[in-house]
Simulated scan of single mutants.
Amino acid sequence: MISKFGQHGRIAMNGKIFQGLTVLAVVASSSSIAFPTKAFAWSKAGHLTVCDYAYRTVSDEAREKINALLKADGEYRSFNYGCVEEDEMPRKHPDDHFINYDRTRVSVSDDVCPQNESCILQGIDRDLEILGDRNRTAKERAKALLGLGHWVGDIHQPLHISFADDRGGNYLLVKGLCGSGKKSNLHSVWDKCLVEKYVLQTKLSKDWAGFTVTYRAVDRLRKLTTAAEKAQWTSTQPWQWAAESYAITRKENTLYCNLNLAGTECSRPNDERISINQDYLKTNGQIAEDRLRMAGVRLAYLIEKALTQ
């Protein structure tokens, strides 16, 4: 059993401590270790990728402060793994994982949660404020840090900025390369399948341990990201990140919407299973990869601002 992880150095597994990289908790030789079956906002691997990207991107000063907060909290020694906490623990803020818009909404142009309900935008604002408040306890700030890492990941998953009547595609079944079982749905395609089959590129070197997979993915993603991209991505606000996700949600290639001729209303696809083929994986896998890169860069920016300014 894998429990709490050390910071990029030691992993506790079956009572033993292994030196290595604290990333994806998948070891090929163990049949007892696998992804959980429930749908995450991004899979565990997706959230690990976003938060590891941010952790390795912030300044040394910010990283030291992250470590100090986590040490004071005492529950998670690893920021990247702690980011998954909101999906694995009973939900304190269940509405912070998504935004549910009306199907007639064409685009997102403001930071208002629909129907005056709570949504992911409030979660980001709340935890960013707590993280930057030096009058709060270290434990409060540590919890806010982990929450912020999770919400920033969530807002970049397109189907978390969608519609309530199908739970962001959870009721839309799929067939093909992302499975055809009862739990194979369009939401899980974006949470997990695109991450595993495209982003992680899990053709590991024979010299790599299985848990290095997301660490190696972050190596690659950070090399792909240019200074110009970083500047552009960090010049926008969280509601604009939601707008980006919502635009992807409504794109024809996502297969989530049947748009009317005027493009003003998105109805649900018919009851037939949606086919996920190689073209879908290639096109949308690249989009998912870009969303993870954006999330990592933007999360690093917010953490840096909250902890060092």
Rank of each mutant, 00 (worst) to 15 (best):
G6F: 07
G9A: 10
N14S: 11
F18D: 10
V23F: 12
L24D: 11
V26H: 08
A28M: 09
S30Y: 11
S32P: 00
I33K: 02
I33F: 02
A39N: 13
A41K: 09
S43R: 00
L48N: 11
L48Y: 01
V50D: 00
Y53V: 07
R56K: 10
S59T: 15
A62Q: 07
R63Q: 12
K65V: 08
L70P: 08
Y76I: 00
R77T: 15
S78H: 02
G82R: 00
E85P: 00
E88C: 01
E88K: 08
M89P: 00
H93M: 05
N100H: 09
Y101M: 04
R103G: 02
V106A: 13
D111G: 12
C113A: 08
P114Y: 03
C119V: 00
I120T: 08
I120G: 01
I124H: 02
I124E: 04
D125C: 00
R126Y: 09
D127V: 02
D127Y: 09
I130C: 04
L131Q: 05
L131K: 03
R134P: 08
A138H: 11
R141S: 06
K143F: 07
A144G: 05
G149L: 02
V152Y: 08
H156L: 09
L159Q: 03
D165P: 06
D166E: 08
G168T: 08
N170Q: 15
L172Y: 01
L173F: 09
G176C: 02
G179Q: 04
N185D: 14
V189C: 05
K192W: 14
K192Q: 13
K192A: 05
E196K: 09
E196L: 12
V199H: 05
T202Y: 14
K206D: 10
F211C: 06
Y215V: 07
T226P: 00
A227Q: 11
A227M: 01
P238L: 06
W239E: 07
A247D: 03
I248D: 01
K251T: 13
E252R: 13
E252F: 10
T254Q: 06
L259P: 02
N260R: 04
N260W: 05
T264L: 07
C266Y: 04
S267H: 03
S267I: 04
N270T: 11
E272C: 01
R273Q: 14
S275V: 15
I276A: 00
Y280R: 03
K282H: 11
N284D: 07
Q286D: 13
Q286H: 10
D290C: 06
G296Q: 09
A300K: 05
T308V: 15
